[in-house]
Design a protein around this nucleic acid. Structure first.
Lengths: 192, 192
DNA sequence: CCTACCGATCGGTAGG
DNA sequence: CCTACCGATCGGTAGG
């Protein structure tokens, strides 16, 4: 419950903008009580990132596993992402989009964790694309890494603009971009 | 010169992470000397944003005006953006990509300035697309707003991943995405 | 532009 | 988990 409050604060102010004092206020626990739990601010930041990862897993990744492997699972995961942004599961929008922009230029252990996590997330998107290629629903000759990049770009941009303007049209543009990207990767129907 | 140092600091730490003390250290001017210039931290932040805007104008927008209106000017502006990121004109990458992510969820005067600036930047991209449509180099029936969104998405994502990993392949993915977006918007050649 | 200073808050610790 | 406290730094001001 401490970590949930911390993820919400950090999604708005960033993991560096998050302070132990503010978190103490928010949770009603004293600062030194929080130090008893986390030991240091950096440890708190790392645990917050981990907790946010579990929330994204629960909101975006896992529910899509009910869909059969292939294009429908890929599309369901994407739909879950847009819904997760739209419902403001984190008040600052997608936690990891914000985090990436915050720490990309700041060296240190958090940078390493985020770079590794981003690499894994990208690999998961590419994996979903490849599954849709394996089932023949997407062209096997398409560049899965490139498609993964373009899908992430559309989702990320939607997230930022939606949070900035509060206007769902940003989400609609992202969904439309996704349709265009996947549409272009569909195999040409064979003439018969 | 003070503002240039400040834009560099802010591109890494953010405009909220920027402190008068750090800037005093960096420039050799005393804190109260800086207050004599800017009056308050918020005023400094606003002037830093304006100074960064002038740099982007100089690096990305203006040089492309030598190209003729239409597709070549659009493509030149995009190429200038990628170059501006690649050369790390700001050590944290594109100043406004970072800024957008930093302030999108924080209400206040800076949020308003950034939202207005982002709206204008988007309108400029869409304007360049429309010019390429007017010259017949892009399909007149294409959705210019949607294309603008997708172009910005590709550029933004490239910026974040390039700064995070330091790997130019992120830029290559963005350039490839741009080619795909513009390629799909080119008019079908008439049969003759 | 400076020195000198303000109260508030930062991350963190002692001792319980 | 708490109270009480530490030195450092924050944004900002007085007075020159």
């Amino acid at each position: 419950m401490i970590l949930e409050a911390a993820t919400k604060l950090a999604s708005i102010e960033g993991v560096h903008g998050l302070t132990i004092g503010r978190l103490a206020e928010e949770t009603g626990i004293s600062k030194s009580g929080l130090y008893a739990h986390f030991g240091s601010k950096e440890q708190l930041q790392l645990e917050v990132i981990q907790a946010a990862g579990a929330i994204v897993e629960r909101e975006v990744v896992l529910p899509a596993l009910e869909e059969p492997e292939g294009l429908s699972r890929l599309e369901a995961t994407i739909a879950n992402f847009f819904s997760y942004v739209e419902r403001l599961v984190f008040p600052g929008g997608c936690f990891f989009s914000s985090l990436l922009a915050e720490v990309d230029a700041r060296p240190g252990p958090i940078h390493e964790v985020v770079a590794a996590g981003q690499k894994q997330a990208s690999a998961e998107w590419v994996g979903l694309v490849r599954e849709a290629q394996a089932s023949g629903e997407l062209n096997r000759k398409a560049d899965a890494d490139q498609i993964g990049f373009e899908l992430e770009a559309a989702m990320t941009q939607s997230n930022y603009l939606y949070v900035l303007y509060g206007d769902p049209v940003a989400l609609e543009r992202g969904r439309q971009a996704v349709r265009r990207i996947l549409g272009a990767a569909k195999p040409k129907p064979k003439k018969r």
